[in-house]
Amino acid sequence: MARIGVVVFPGSNCEYDAANAVSELGATPVFIWHSANDLGEVDGVILPGGFAHGDYLRPGALARFSPVMAAVQHFADNGGAVLGICNGFQVLTEAGLLPGALQKNRGLTFLCQPSTLVVASTRSVLTRNATVGQHLSVPINHFSGSYTCDDATYESLVANDQIVLRYLDNPNGSRDNIAGVSNEAGNVVGLMPHPERAMSTLLGSADGRVLLGGFVGLAATASL
């Protein structure tokens, strides 16, 4: 059974949602405290949402220097599947594991609402089970979610098929409606929406299963 590490920073608050989603998809979640120097035996890693280190300075600015991030970097460099959700996405961009940055929403309001995502690439560990153009209903819950990058970075994102998900109706002013991006290899992915909160139609949407199912399934394959 695949083991998925869920990194917990002081101020993380979506780690149980992420762990529950992992369990529901048939894998074993393992919490990893931010001061750990290694990840232990895991087949994939999730950086969950929240307010790591209080989001002081900038979201992710202090979390990227937590000891565990060196281990996450090492894991990613060796092809390990890494997923950053919301605050986890911000941490991955601050750490340089993903290109670009997240700045304050265009309307300067905290957004907590459903969003419709359009799958832009299936080359990533998160979207491998989806189809290009597929619409997914996944909630957003953030203040600094407006994706930004310079022109050269944007051109390389497009050229390398690294734009993974776009918003149908851009709620936060992100460049080119970008909701999620991957690294060049596709094994590191970050997105602002919360797929771990879209696991049940009873609670609004089960579309998160398409995304997290792919991620957990890939990690399971890696563990064989």
Binding site: K104, L108, D150, G173
Partner: peptide, 13 residues
């Protein structure tokens, strides 16, 4: 400060 060319919703508001 935000680099030139980066949108500044706070400053604009």
């Amino acid at each position: 400060t935000l680099r030139a060319g980066i949108a500044d919703p706070e400053g604009a508001t």
